[in-house]
C-alpha cells in the first residue's frame, strides 16, 4: 500500500466544519472485473453508531478495509476527523476490530493487549493503565494472565474488541463482532457498543443480523451488491415503506415455489424464502393473508405458522433488495 502525504489539516478544520468523525465519499473498489464497492458515501458523527447492513458478499468488509486504510480505493476518499486516511498518523484515531479474532492464542490476554498497544505507540505506565482499563471494561480482568487459547468464543470476541479500544480511538470500526457468539456474550457486546456511542465515540458497525442493527444503531446504511441502496435512521427507512406489513410464513416444502406463489398475490410488494420461512412485504397484512394461504396451498407447501408484524429493518431490506438477509 502506498502511503502518500495528504493535504495538511492538522487542526482538523474540515472535520470541525463538517462535524463528521468519518467521512467517505464515492468509495469504489474492484477486484478484477467484479466491482465490490460502488460509489459508497457515508458519514459518522461523534457519539453516533452507524450500522452497515448487508448480506455476505455485499461489500461491507471491503468498505471497512478502505475506511481503515487497509485497502486503497480505486476512487473516492476517506477522512477521519477531517484528515485523509493515507496519512499514517490518522490510523491512531481508529480502533479496528476485525471479523476474525485477531489475537495470538498462545499469548495471554495482557500480553496480546500490551503488544497491540505498543503498535499504537503506548508505552510504560500509560500502556499498563490502558491494558487494565480495557480488561476492566470488557470484564476480563480476572483472566488477564491466561492464554487466549483457553478463552471461550465470547471471551475472545470481547478481548478482540478490547484491543480496538486500547488507544482511545475517536472512531471504532467493528466488522461483524458478534459472529459465532453465544447470546449472553452477544448481549454484553451490544451493550458495550451502545455505551461507547453514548460516551461520544463514533462507531461504524457492520452486521448481517437485523435485530442487532435495530437494537444498537442510530443510523443504518443498506449495502447490496456493493452499492449503498438506502441510508437513514431506522424510522426514516421504515417510513419509506409506507403503510406496509411483513408477514412471515413458516412452512415446509419447496420454499422458492412458495415465495413465487406469494409474489403473485395482489398487493404483495415482495416475498423471499429464507431458512424454512418466506418473508412477505404487503400493504395490509391481515387483508392479504387469506390470499397468501390459498397461494401457498396451490404451491404445494405446507404452512405451519403465520406471523404478521409491523414493518422493521428486515422489511425494508426485503422491500429494497427483494431478498431476505440470511443469518
Amino acid at each position: 500500500m502506498n502511503v502518500r502525504a495528504p493535504p495538511a489539516d492538522p487542526e482538523g478544520l474540515r472535520a470541525a466544519a463538517t462535524g463528521h468523525v468519518l467521512s467517505c465519499t464515492g468509495l469504489t473498489k474492484s477486484f478484477g472485473r467484479r466491482r465490490a464497492v460502488d460509489l459508497v458515501g457515508l458519514h459518522v458523527d461523534a457519539g453516533q453508531i452507524y450500522g452497515l447492513l448487508g448480506p455476505n458478499g455485499a461489500g461491507k468488509t471491503t468498505t471497512i478495509k478502505m475506511v481503515c486504510g487497509l485497502l486503497d480505493p480505486d476512487e473516492g476518499t476517506v477522512a477521519v476527523a477531517g484528515r485523509d486516511i493515507r496519512d499514517l498518523a490518522v490510523r491512531a484515531l481508529i480502533g479496528y476490530v476485525p471479523q476474525e479474532v485477531a489475537l495470538y492464542p498462545d499469548l495471554t490476554a495482557r500480553e496480546n493487549l500490551a503488544f497491540l498497544g505498543r503498535l499504537y505507540r503506548l508505552r510504560g505506565r500509560v500502556l499498563g493503565e490502558r491494558v487494565d482499563e480495557v480488561l476492566e471494561v470488557t470484564g476480563l480482568s480476572d483472566r488477564a494472565r491466561e492464554r487466549v487459547e483457553a478463552f471461550s468464543g465470547g471471551m475472545r470476541r470481547r478481548l478482540n474488541i478490547a484491543a480496538g479500544l486500547l488507544h482511545h480511538p475517536r472512531l471504532l470500526v467493528l466488522d461483524e463482532p458478534t459472529v459465532g457468539v453465544d447470546p449472553q456474550s452477544r448481549h454484553a457486546i451490544l451493550e458495550r457498543v451502545r455505551s461507547l456511542g453514548a460516551g461520544g465515540m463514533a462507531v461504524l458497525y457492520t452486521t448481517h443480523y437485523m435485530e442487532e442493527a435495530d437494537r444498537v444503531c442510530d443510523r443504518v446504511g443498506i449495502l447490496d451488491h456493493g452499492r449503498l441502496i438506502a441510508e437513514g435512521t431506522k424510522r426514516e427507512l421504515v417510513a419509506r415503506l409506507g403503510e406496509k406489513d411483513r408477514i412471515d410464513l413458516v412452512a415446509s416444502g419447496d420454499m422458492e415455489a412458495l415465495a413465487a406463489a406469494c409474489r403473485s398475490v395482489p398487493d404483495v410488494a415482495t416475498a423471499a424464502a429464507v431458512d424454512g420461512r418466506v418473508n412477505v412485504v404487503a400493504g395490509d397484512g391481515r387483508r392479504v393473508l387469506p390470499a397468501l394461504l390459498e397461494a401457498a396451498e396451490r404451491s404445494g407447501a405446507a404452512v405451519h405458522s403465520v406471523e404478521v408484524v409491523e414493518a422493521d429493518l428486515e422489511s425494508v431490506f426485503l422491500h429494497l433488495t427483494g431478498t431476505a438477509l440470511r443469518e
Partner: peptide, 18 residues
C-alpha cells in the same frame, strides 16, 4: 498462521509502516 488469524491485517491497521 499469523496471516490467517488476521493479525497482520490488525497490525497494518495501526499507525505502523509495513
Amino acid at each position: 498462521e499469523t496471516r490467517r488469524m488476521g493479525l497482520y491485517e490488525r497490525m497494518a491497521a495501526a499507525p505502523v509502516r509495513q
